[in-house]
Design a protein around this nucleic acid. Structure first.
Lengths: 343, 343
DNA sequence: TTGTAAGCGTTATCAG
DNA sequence: CTGATAACGCTTACAA
């Protein structure tokens, strides 16, 4: 009957319920400030019209969006999926919506994405790792948008972070495998430029070597992007130029899975002929054969804590407080001890 | 010096450049309508202030957001990643931004997500598969928001779709493997309720059986969610209750990878003891051993075409036209012929 | 408890 | 080519 053709507005609802737009607005935002009678009337009108609030109008008037933006390096693999999932769940619980963008690991893309998120009114922003153009931090500060770093922990950094110590985690892990007698070590890392996680993991391996009186300069390191193919190709290249390599430490499970495939294609047995390790402990680590020995990252806890902290920063208008989470080593089948090594 | 503290607005820029807000707006949207002189002056002011347009205000005034929403079942695995990536790239090229939500395969969640996307001003919406509460389609129609279905093709459906014929694809594939002599067939599918893709793939297998004079009722079917674990558990259960099964057709590569792990854990050789197949041909299909024989879906092309079509629907204000893409079979190592089968 | 009305930051129409 | 100015749909003092 009533044939207002376009999307119904507050005004339409108000008219139908015979109240003012202010009342309808209150009914939607602070229902207890209304008589039950009017509230019911308004709600009925809302339902009859199939009214949905216009987000743009709302955020313009309220200067608040209850939206949080997250920029991740990639959605192509599952590395960030679990953590983000947990982040999102906690956000939901607190009434916030998550907007995700990915940069395909292109540092230059990040600034654009962040500006977009901020332009869209994000009340806060989550980013992965500390490394990025300072201009980005300046912009965010100027816009007064809270930022939280995750997947990395750095007390000294100006931006608060909830994550783990990539360097220490990798160092501990590397010390463990070196303790198994490995002396010829290879490493496949993600590109370390603009990526503190990758850089710290490399540093961690070198720390471990030093601690075991191995020359860090002998680490055969190769940096590649982030796909299975990259991992496989890197492995092939590595074993070709350093055939004596007994273990290849990978900067991520994805690269490690690629490396394992590379080994298979080369006819090498893992771990009998060569050991391979990952980092992250995503589900993927358990679908290869052998399953991956890797560093377990508390994805879920990290995501949840990050959400909690970021929301607190927004709502309490306070600085974020960093938090360091622990990683653990999970031994599966991809690492063997060197025979005859002193243990 | 000039210490307007909050985010700069059009007004600030206008004042600094000594022009009207209208001019600034034009400078940003239709630059050629300005003298080079004023344009430069405005641009300088924009840069000096670090101005970013307010998205909410813009979309409210223009009633256009250049944003497209996509709702996918899950981000947890890579099934939709490649297609979405291509979708996004094409959108970028045309000046649109993509907003993604995932439902975790919960049909009930979809309506809420769609309303959210529409409230945020999405100019168009992309969804996966045809099956959903009709109320959703009603809502979208009422709001005059163009919708395009992908990952499925159905000429008869009221909503335009750019995808492939899941039933035919699976039928062809199943006929091929049945032709190899398999008579005891198992199938691990995603939950088929509210999921036409899953249902059609099941139907396709039955079609193939019928065509080969096998009783479709003998198909040992099990429906599970969508993780590796689900695939593994389903496989165990299937082989337990139907030990004579010679091939297990999986509704997705993810489930198939889980099934392969299940086989390994049971001590079964693939494909010597049992053949296992996937569907989708995502990268994952090539990291298992043996690598998966599966149905290749043209993710990239599908995503790109979907973007092109949806944008056309929006800009030309016209109905969408469906398009059927072809899938292909890719044989890798996970299927064996039954010895002595007549071929 | 409810209504009035002033913004919020853009775009777009219409003059000039 | 440029400038006023009226929307756009909602929230929020401030009044009643």
């Amino acid at each position: 009957m009533s044939s207002t053709d376009a999307a119904p507005t507050l005004d339409d609802v108000a008219r139908l319920a015979d109240v003012s737009t202010a009342t309808v607005s209150r009914c939607l935002n602070t229902p207890d400030k209304l008589t039950k009678a009017t509230r019911d009337r308004v709600l009925a009108a809302v339902k009859e019209l199939g009214y949905t609030p216009n987000f743009a109008a709302r955020s313009m008037a309220a200067k608040r969006t209850f939206t949080i933006g997250a920029i991740i390096p990639t959605m192509e693999n599952a590395i960030f999926a679990r953590g983000l999932q947990a982040f999102q769940e906690e956000l939901d619980r607190r009434g916030y919506t998550l907007l995700v963008s990915s940069t395909a690991y292109k540092a230059e893309a990040e600034e654009k994405q962040i500006r977009n998120l901020v332009a869209r009114g994000a009340d806060g922003v989550l980013v992965i790792g500390h490394d990025r153009d300072p201009a980005i931090y300046d912009y965010l500060r100027q816009q007064r948008v809270p930022v939280l770093v995750t997947w990395s922990y750095d007390d000294a950094a100006p931006t608060p972070s909830i994550g783990f110590d990539n360097r220490a985690a990798m160092r501990t892990f590397a010390e463990r495998v070196i303790g198994l007698g490995h002396r010829h070590i290879g490493m496949i890392s993600s590109m370390s430029a603009q990526n503190d996680r990758a850089r710290m993991r490399i540093a961690g391996v070198k720390d471990a070597m030093l601690a075991h009186r191995l020359d860090p300069a002998t680490l055969d390191l190769i940096e590649v992007p982030y796909t299975f193919d990259d991992g496989e190709n890197a492995f092939l290249q590595l074993m070709h130029r350093s055939p004596q390599t007994s273990i290849v430490l990978c900067g991520s499970d994805v690269l490690a899975v690629g490396a394992i495939r590379g080994a298979r294609h080369m006819g090498l047995q893992v771990p009998a002929d060569v050991s391979i390790t990952g980092f992250d402990d995503i589900e993927l680590a358990q679908v290869t054969h052998p399953e991956l020995t890797t560093v377990h990252v508390p994805h879920h806890r990290m995501g949840k804590l990050a959400a909690t902290e970021l929301v607190a920063m927004i709502e309490e208008k306070r600085e974020g407080v960093s938090q360091r989470l622990e990683t653990t080593i999970v031994e599966r089948g991809s690492v063997a001890a060197i025979k005859g090594a002193k243990r």
